[in-house]
């Protein structure tokens, strides 16, 4: 199903750059700040927003995002007010949520509400391929897509199956472990991206550990998009007040967005 995500990746491709996907924890430290940060991030050039639903036990996240989730929960973030952040956001929004909040809210009800508020898709990192079907069915039935994750340790056969099931884009995990700003082995990531590239014609976006412009420069020819989370959370969480948070986020996104633009000679292969 063609979505706003396809348009976003197509636009980036046309401009000869990889797309920039910005991950923001909803409600951290409050909804007003998130609103300001989302607006600033989109204005600064983020192509797609990954809106993180705060969760107290995030198995795939490192300390930065886990702490952001704790702050959001402490401030009273709920799914209802998280959904309300979507309509005013001037970029395609993909929700990023652990499965338990979705199960308790009700998968159908969740998908319906997300769609009604204008979300394009849902990423649920702790639903493995084996557990996916009933959830994916409910999500798809309501017109949303589910991008899936592929890890460096995912065997080829399984990775192929994931690329055939994933919609919107293939989320490749840059390294073993969790989200955060620790180093990424750029060469390993390029190999991982090339491996997945051979399996699918759909866009590939890399996340987990992508935090700096030089990393993006190093991998921008190998992927169609980069996902930046922990670094962005740090950029706004270190500021006091919504306006300063928005400014902090904006500065980082502008810098990273510049890095997404492919240099003319290196871009020859990627232009296809």
């Amino acid at each position: 199903m063609a979505t706003l995500l396809d348009d976003a990746f197509a636009k980036a491709k046309k401009e000869d750059r990889c797309a920039l996907i910005a991950y923001v924890v909803a409600g951290d430290p409050d909804m007003e700040t998130t609103r300001a940060v989302l607006d600033a991030v989109v204005e600064a050039g983020a192509d797609i927003i990954e809106l993180g639903v705060p969760y107290g036990d995030p198995l795939a996240d490192g300390p930065t995002i886990a702490a952001a989730g704790q702050r959001a929960l402490a401030a009273g973030a709920t799914l209802e007010n998280i959904f309300r952040l979507i309509p005013g956001t001037k970029a395609p929004v993909v929700l990023f949520t652990y499965v338990n909040p979705v199960l308790q809210y009700g998968v159908e009800k969740f998908a319906l509400a997300a769609k009604r508020h204008g979300a394009v898709g849902v990423i649920v990192p702790d639903v493995s391929l084996e557990e996916l079907e009933p959830i994916r069915e409910a999500i798809r039935k309501n017109g949303l897509i589910m991008p899936l994750l592929i890890s460096p340790t995912t065997p080829d056969e399984r990775a192929k199956k994931i690329t055939q099931t994933s919609e919107g884009f293939n989320y490749i995990v840059s390294r073993l472990g969790v989200t955060g700003k620790d180093a990424v082995d750029v060469e390993g990531l390029k190999d991982h991206a090339a491996r997945v590239r051979r399996m699918t014609g759909f866009p590939i976006a890399a996340g987990f550990g992508i935090s700096k412009a030089p990393q993006i420069v190093a991998i921008r020819d190998s992927v169609d998009g980069v996902i930046v989370g922990s670094a962005l959370v740090e950029a706004y969480a270190s500021q006091k007040g919504a306006a300063a948070a928005a400014a902090g986020a904006s500065r980082l996104v502008r810098l990273l967005r510049l890095a997404c633009k492919r240099a003319a000679p290196a871009a020859a292969g990627a232009k296809g």
């Binding site: 198995l59 795939a60 702790d126 493995s128 084996e130 994750l149 592929i150 340790t153 995912t154 995990v173």
Partner: peptide, 19 residues
């Protein structure tokens, strides 16, 4: 799939599936 009736399974991030 690791289920005792309706319970159990492998609800983990992909990075943990291979291990």
């Amino acid at each position: 799939r690791g289920y005792f009736g309706d319970f159990g399974g492998r609800w983990v991030p992909e990075v943990l599936v291979a291990p």
